[in-house]
Amino acid sequence: MTFSKEDMARRAAAEIPAGSIVNLGIGLPTLCADYLPEGHAYLHSENGLLGMGPFPFEGDEHPQLINAGKQTVTVLPGGSTFDSAASFAMIRGGHVDLAILGAMQVSAKGDLANWAVPGGRVMGIGGAMDLATGCRRVVALMQHATKEGEHKLVRACTYPLTATGVVARVITELGVFDPVGEGFRVVELAPGVDRDKVAALTGAALL
């Protein structure tokens, strides 16, 4: 058994302290919001929204109320909107407590690569570098290896870097791991997952 996507999102949501400000990256991290009790935390979206709520009910969607993934969203009571300069000052200035981000590679030193594939199309940087650099804690939520079995938890990233030494914790379908420099410390394994199998799928030492 491995963690399903829902399990991964639920496990990542457990990293969010009550009363904290959190930015959830585009894709799988967005699902974490579904596992937060009402009023538990305040969601920040870098396009200029704090206190982001769930997707709107059908018919209530508004083209001028979106998240950073350009999906229609809602704003909760107590929420606020602001311009992009203010939004990134919040991020860069260390006011956002936690970012849960997707990742292509994470190194044992906590380096993050999540914006470009070597030789692939340039999709752009967006808010990735600011979030990885500025948020007080960064959790990577990702597949443990590529479909072809290539390592994504590695000794040193080979993909273009987003930021260096920023990832505190990695959550994959195989478990929870902390980059600690010389390797990845196993925090927990998904139910029934064999440590040797994880080791084979990890490109750095398991500690």
Partner: peptide, 29 residues
């Protein structure tokens, strides 16, 4: 391509009479 926060801060600086600034975003990349 600029990091989004750098892009908007470059605009903010231009509007505020600041010719350049230092940012941690993008260091080591």
């Amino acid at each position: 391509v600029n990091p989004q926060g750098t892009l908007v801060e470059r605009m903010r600086a231009a509007g505020a009479g600041i010719p350049a600034f230092y940012t941690p975003t993008g260091v080591g990349t």
